[in-house]
Design a protein around this nucleic acid. Structure first.
Lengths: 153, 153
DNA sequence: TATTGTTATACTCTATAACTATA
DNA sequence: TATAGTTATAGAGTATAACAATA
C-alpha cells in the first residue's frame, strides 16, 4: 500500500503542479499575444531596459540566431523595436514599444496576482511548512544538477 | 521589505522548482534518445499496452496528425513499431519494441529514484508540511483553471 | 456517412555553420 | 582579428484542412 506521505506522492504533486502552472501561464500569455519564449524576452527587456541581442542571448541562454527570430516575431506583433545602437553600428538596441511596456507591466501584475491566488491567505503553519519543504527540495535538486554537470565535463 | 514567507517568495520557489525539474528531466530523457513529447507517448504506451494513434491522441491531448509525426520519430529511432490492427484495417497498432520497453522501464525507475533523491529521508514534519501545502495549492490551482475554462465557454 | 491515418501547409522554438558589416 | 547580427539549413513540436482507405 502506498502512503500519501511517501516520496512518490510528493513527487506526483510537484509534477502535477508544474503541469498545471505551465498550462495556466501559457493560457495567460497567449491571451496577450505572447508565446512563452517571447514573453521571457519581454520580461528581461523590462528588467534590463533596452539592450543588444547578444545581451539577450546571454540572459535567455539561447543562441544569437534564436534571438533574431524572437525579436523578428516581437517586432512583427508590435511589442519591441530594433533601434540603432547609440555607439556600436554593428549592434541593435532592442526596445519595448508602449504596448510592449504595458503588457510587460501586466505580466508583473499577473505574477503577483497568481502568487496571491495560490499562496495568499494560507494558514501560517501551512505556508511555512510549504516554503521550508520547497527550500530543502530545491537545495537537493541544485546539488544533483551541479553534480551531473561535473560528471559530463 | 519582503519576507521569505510571503506568497511571492513561495511562488518564486515553485517556479524555480519547475524550471530545474524540467531541465533535469529533459537531460535524462535526451540521454535515452528521447524528447519530452516522445517520452510521454512511450510512457502512455507502456501503461496502456499497444493501442491506436487515435487513442494516443486522446491520451496526450494532441491532434492525430501530431501523433503520426511522433510515431514516425519513434519508429525511426527504434522505440516502437506500427503493427497491423487485429480487427480494424484502417487503424495502426502502435507497439513498444524490446528496446522501447526497456527504456520505458528505465523511465519508471528513474522517476522513483528522482522522487527518492528529492523527497526521501526528509524529516517527517517537513515532508508532511510540504505535501499538505502542495495539496492546498493544487486545489486552488485546479479551481482557478476550471473557472477559467467556464468563462471561455 | 463516420472514422483512421496521411499528405499538404504553416508557425514556433531551437541549433550549427557560414557570411557581412563593423570594431 | 574579434564581435554583432544575419542568411542558410535542419530538426522537433504543434496546428488546421483536405483526402484516402476502410468501417
Amino acid at each position: 500500500m502506498t502512503s500519501t506521505r511517501d516520496p512518490g506522492a510528493a513527487f506526483d504533486r510537484v509534477l502535477e503542479l508544474t503541469v498545471l502552472l505551465n498550462a495556466d501561464m501559457e493560457r495567460g500569455l497567449a491571451a496577450q499575444g505572447l508565446t512563452p519564449a517571447r514573453a521571457h524576452l519581454v520580461w528581461e527587456l523590462q528588467h534590463r531596459g533596452p539592450c543588444t541581442q547578444q545581451t539577450l542571448a546571454g540572459a535567455l541562454g539561447v543562441t544569437p540566431r534564436n534571438i533574431t527570430a524572437l525579436v523578428d516575431g516581437l517586432v512583427a506583433t508590435g511589442f519591441v523595436t530594433r533601434e540603432p545602437h547609440p555607439t556600436d553600428r554593428r549592434a541593435a538596441h532592442v526596445t519595448l514599444t508602449d504596448h510592449g511596456r504595458r503588457v510587460a507591466d501586466g505580466l508583473v501584475d499577473g505574477r503577483a496576482q497568481a502568487a496571491d491566488q495560490l499562496f495568499g491567505d494560507l494558514p501560517e503553519p501551512v505556508l511555512t511548512g510549504l516554503v521550508d519543504g520547497l527550500d530543502v527540495v530545491l537545495d537537493r535538486l541544485r546539488a544533483a544538477l551541479a553534480g551531473a554537470g561535473e560528471e559530463s565535463r
